[in-house]
């Protein structure tokens, strides 16, 4: 897909995020929106997947280690055709299959996650499984920058580096904010890139909202042999919704009806701008 098409789709994914969280009256819009371009690139460009056959054995795998940003994943999956976009507002409702955190019963979800630090280990296990059997699928996992405070992340990083899992790609959504405030004030995980380098990863720093850089990073990751790759993507929390951008208040809060209208108007405006730019 061309960048403009990806941008348009990412905008649709953002609309789905806001709509899902508004429908749920709870959930995590900030970190979903910061990763929306990444979700879009993974599911519409990078990964070898088939929405008609979500369990195909040779598919690439994705684990959302920062599972609380499920609205971002669900919106990408819905827009990609795994399930109806119309189901997004049932998020977190009793009886809905769209659980508050990713669950393997949901079409397209490769691993249940949500307890921070655990997804990266499962993803490393999938990558190891491919290696053990000489299979060629790749495994991707997305972590939050606050999540890096979990010790298990570094157990998994040590393991993946030691095992030389070059079919494994860790992505860090570095939006600088966690629930209690800026990550530098809570318990700084910086320097993120140097830490992963020390754990024997090939590290690439990119702008999380620049599709040229995203595309180039994944292309580079595919050429790396003998070590896993970590893409540190520098992002804007709440990206796309004016009042949510770079605001820790919108880490885990749903917009009310009025705020929802403003948010959707913001995204409609971006959509029109993209139409005109084409």
């Amino acid at each position: 897909m061309k960048n403009i098409e990806l941008q348009k789709m990412a905008n649709e994914v953002r609309k789905g995020i806001v709509t899902a969280v508004h429908g749920a009256k709870a959930g995590h819009p900030g970190g979903s929106l910061s990763a929306a371009d990444m979700f879009t690139f993974l599911y519409f460009e990078e990964m070898n997947i088939d929405p008609a056959d979500p369990h195909r054995e040779d598919r690439d795998r994705f684990v959302l280690s920062k599972g609380h940003t499920a609205p971002g994943l669900y919106s990408a999956l819905a827009n990609r055709g795994y399930f109806p976009v119309e189901d997004l507002p049932t998020l977190r409702h009793l009886g809905s299959y769209l659980q508050g955190h990713p669950c393997m019963h949901i079409p397209g979800v490769d691993m249940s996650s949500g307890s921070l630090g655990q997804g990266i280990s499962a993803a490393a296990g999938m990558a190891l499984g491919a290696k053990l059997d000489g299979r060629t699928f790749r495994v991707y996992t997305l972590l939050g920058d606050g999540e890096l405070e979990e010790g298990q992340v570094w157990e998994a990083a040590m393991f993946a580096g030691h095992r030389k899992l070059d079919n494994f790609c860790v992505i860090v959504d570095n939006n600088n904010l966690q629930i209690d405030g800026p990550i530098t004030e809570v318990c700084s995980p910086y320097p993120i890139d140097k830490k992963f380098e020390a754990f024997n990863f090939h590290v690439i720093n990119i702008d999380a909202h620049d599709f040229d850089q995203i595309r180039a990073a994944f292309a580079e990751a595919r050429t790396v042999k003998g070590m896993p790759t970590c893409i540190v993507m520098h992002s804007l929390k709440g990206k796309g919704v004016s009042f949510m951008e770079n605001s820790v208040d919108w880490h885990g809060k749903a917009p009310n009806d009025e705020e929802y209208a403003i948010a959707m108007a913001d995204l409609e405006k971006i959509g029109r701008q993209l139409e005109n730019a084409e």
Partner: peptide
């Protein structure tokens, strides 16, 4: 077929979970 995960039991259990999802 023996994978020593080092002294890191939490990661080991997660790695096992991932291995199980791909048929091991």
């Amino acid at each position: 077929r023996h994978i020593d995960c080092g002294i890191a039991e939490s990661n080991m259990v997660g790695v096992a979970a991932g291995l199980a999802t791909v048929g091991k």
